[in-house]
Design a protein around this nucleic acid. Sequence first.
DNA 1: TATTCTACCAACCAGCCGGTATGCAGGCAA
DNA 2: TTGCCTGCATACCGGCTGGTTGGTAGAATA
Lengths: 208, 208
Amino acid sequence: MEQAENTARAQRNPDQTRQRILEAAFMEIYRNGFQGMRLDEVLAATRLTKGALYHHFPNKQALGYAVVDEVILPTMQAMWVQPLRGAEEPLGALVEVIEQMVDSKPPEMIQYGCPLNNLAQEMSPLDEGFRQRLDYAFAIWHDSVQAALEQAQRLGQIRKDCNCDEIATFVLAAMEGCIGLAKAAQSRERLRTCNRGLIQFLQSLKAH
Amino acid sequence: MEQAENTARAQRNPDQTRQRILEAAFMEIYRNGFQGMRLDEVLAATRLTKGALYHHFPNKQALGYAVVDEVILPTMQAMWVQPLRGAEEPLGALVEVIEQMVDSKPPEMIQYGCPLNNLAQEMSPLDEGFRQRLDYAFAIWHDSVQAALEQAQRLGQIRKDCNCDEIATFVLAAMEGCIGLAKAAQSRERLRTCNRGLIQFLQSLKAH
DNA sequence: TATTCTACCAACCAGCCGGTATGCAGGCAA
DNA sequence: TTGCCTGCATACCGGCTGGTTGGTAGAATA
């Protein structure tokens, strides 16, 4: 009788509950921004109540911080950092990652943009706690791109006089800019066009 | 007696009142986003009341639209489009505009980023009215960059095989990306670093 | 089996926020 | 002067939103 009523609810699994809250909060933030996220919407999505949320997180801000640390940062690493790890063709791997994002699994990339950059743009001037966490994520990302460029340099794929630190920073900026422009246009084609420019830049670094 | 009380208030000047509301609303949106803008704050800044605001604008959305049309778009044109108009050295003018934005008059550029892009990132997926207006502003901007590039091409400053349309799109994306990254870091130095990458890209277009 | 603690629910609350209703002073036409 | 319309001010409201409080069922502990 009880099992027939609601199989999903009754079981006591705090870690999973916390994770469900985090993921629902992430989606709400992704779509509406942190200020636009409504806790009631998160609870409706998880079919939980205020009590559950405030048992796992002291307030909305802490929930936001946790979303950065435990959802956005790991996702970013899996999507952008991991593919560059120890690639034999670092420059090619970089280009490939850029091209892949056009037809990336989540089709929301064009509609809603980059979760990391969205939150950074919204919250960096308003909340130092957010800013530090998001800037840290950018730093991780930057270092992986820089490492790939330096490896490409060692392999003679790009010129020796390139400042890999500086270029990595610009590549990050350009990628976020491309995604942002595509989002503003709500157009996947715009992202393709934009990315071609970025790839053209990377090609211009090649040694010949 | 009446003149001594409050010289600024009493005079009946609807156009100026409307303009004051627009500028205060712009600053609020610039700092907190459209969703984060509170009408009460706008009214506090202008020392007006609800009656005045709702006399000039039917609702919050319409106020936001008016800010785009009457503040953000003209400002963008003055800052980015105008300097490229009929420049004898279009490529040099482009580089100069980019370099100037590092030490631009409003020091809030690093703190709060680009008003146009901020709003585009926040509202494009949520409100088609905003999206169209902001996309239109981007189109104006794009066309002016494209025209400058094509002029540079005619003058033999950049290679003939460059796709100026595509490059202009990428340049826009890169500029917004640079500003965004600097905002995320809250660092003027980051903007300088980032801009050097963009200028390096523009140099790579040169014919030799 | 009695006790305790964890995980969560249900109900409520205060403050804010967009929006409205109403009133009224001053310019302007007649 | 009279009346009218524009340009605001004042006061108010309903609903939403983050946050709180008291309780309780079930697992863990003893």
